Amino acid sequence: MSRFFLIVFLLAIIPFHIVRGMGLMSSNSSMEEKDFYETIIKESAQHQSSNLTLSKYLAPYFSQAVRKNDKALLAIYYCLLADQSFNDEGKRNSFSDKYYLKALDLDEGYSYQNVKTWVKVMYGFYLYRCLKASEAMPFILEGERGLEDVPKELVLDIVQTYKKLGYFFWDLG
């Protein structure tokens, strides 16, 4: 009899946890996609000598994103170009604003919470670097809240993401 209750209990509990876990995972990219996106983010750091160099490195990924209609990859592409444009100019400029806004506009085109969170943190940190902390605050807070819905192993560029949040919150005290 106790074996019967154990089997019934396991049948009732296991599917709940599986379904619950699947719901959390499906709102984020798969581990393979996360690794792919993160590789692009990390390798782009090696091509940040200029916007032209980075654009050449990212060109095949841009083509792939357009061909496959991968809005998450496009958002990452625009964020990387925006960040490079800011670094090249040393200040806020129309190109970095335009690229970040394009990345944010793609938000509705994909459902990956981990990518959305990364984009919000990137844009918030960009505004922070432009000395616009009050404008950055909603994006940083939204990014931080978004991390609560992302399993740690699926957070994009986890070290840099948390470092940017840390700089922002440390500076505000």
Rank of each mutant, 00 (worst) to 15 (best):
F95H: 12
L73W: 02
S2V: 10
L10P: 05
K71L: 10
R92P: 02
Q48V: 01
S63E: 12
S27D: 15
R129G: 06
S26I: 15
V159C: 05
M1A: 13
L127R: 07
F36G: 00
D157S: 05
G124E: 03
Q113K: 09
F5T: 07
S55E: 14
E148T: 06
N114Q: 08
N87M: 15
L80V: 05
G124C: 07
V8D: 04
V8Y: 09
M137I: 09
I13K: 04
L156P: 01
E43S: 06
Q46A: 11
W170P: 00
F86N: 00
G124V: 03
I40M: 05
S50Y: 05
S50A: 07
K98N: 05
I140R: 00
A75W: 01
D171E: 14
Y57S: 06
F4N: 09
L154K: 13
K164F: 13
K102D: 14
Y123H: 15
Y37V: 04
G124M: 03
E108G: 01
G21I: 06
E43T: 04
I14Y: 10
E142N: 12
M137K: 14
E153G: 01
K91H: 11
E32T: 11
A82E: 07
K68I: 02
S26A: 15
G143M: 00
D149H: 07
I18V: 11
E32L: 12
F86K: 02
T39D: 05
Y112I: 02
Q113E: 11
V66H: 01
E43A: 06
F125W: 12
Y77Q: 09
P15W: 14
W118D: 01
S2Y: 09
I14K: 09
Y77I: 05
L127N: 03
E142H: 08
K116Q: 12
K91P: 10
T161R: 00
V8F: 10
S44A: 15
A75T: 02
A72W: 09
E89T: 12
Y112H: 08
L58A: 06
N114H: 08
V115Y: 03
E38R: 06
E153I: 13
L6M: 06
N51R: 13
G21K: 11
S29N: 05
E38P: 03
W170Y: 12
R67W: 03
E135A: 12
D105K: 15
P15I: 14
L54Q: 14
E38I: 08
L131S: 09
I14P: 00
A12Q: 03
K132E: 15
E148K: 08
K91E: 13
F169E: 06
M122L: 10
Q84H: 04
N69I: 07
T53A: 14
N28Q: 09
M25K: 10
I40G: 01
G124F: 00
I14M: 12
